[in-house]
Amino acid sequence: MSQSPQSNGGVGVEVRGLRKSFSGQSVLKGINLSIKPGEILVVMGASGSGKTVLLKHIIGLEEPDAGEILIAGEPISCANVFEKYRFGMVFQSGALLNSMTVAENVGLYLTEHRLGNPAEIARRVKETLSLVDLHNIEGKYPAELSGGMKKRVAIARALIIEPQIMLYDEPTSELDPLSAVTISEEILSLNQRTHVTSVVVTHDRDLAFGVADRIAIIDRGEVLLVGTPEEIRQSANDVIKNFINADFRKDRK
């Protein structure tokens, strides 16, 4: 690994009474969560339980029907929150700009915010790509990359922002087990290097129990339990037990 990106450390996130409906269907029903600065919080839950919608609220892509999100105590609706704090998000699909090369994608934040001359941006892109173990792919287009490489480029693109809050939406979905382990290691090492506050939405139990400081289980738009991985394992709640112990065996009766 080469030089790590600088960071001012993570900031706290507070979710208070968050409610959201789409076409009359209630997706979030009064979510309350407190995420400490520098913590890795993993949000788990069945498909359609509202995890991604929660993530989109935390980064301001959705407006709540009721409730609020506070970033270091300031409502996210304040105009200057996105100027004051740096956010990074790794989308489930990667969401790389397909018309741009890897280097242009990773350097986009720096280019658009004019944070350096082209040579300096190229150097930082190379460095950041090497942090996620990607080398000599600057000139490639997203369509030429494998799923795992796309995810790592997406992490590099978020990493170059030197985020204080990092959000991951299903970072290991569609990946083989080895790539999933690499991504999990990236999430952990980034958190250890920069103390970024991380929120990880996932179904992947290995990832969740491997990286989480705390896990929040969401079911049908409500938080069932927030606790350390050990507390979640020992929970007596049937929904949680079923979710974390779900297994399939061909010969099971």
Binding site: F87, F91, S93, A95, N98
Partner: peptide, 20 residues
């Protein structure tokens, strides 16, 4: 088509998260 495809595949959301 180009902007629509960017919207459908979350590329525009990605721009917003980068404060672009």
């Amino acid at each position: 088509a180009e902007i629509g495809s960017m919207a459908a595949y979350q590329e525009i959301d990605a721009l917003r998260t980068m404060n672009i």
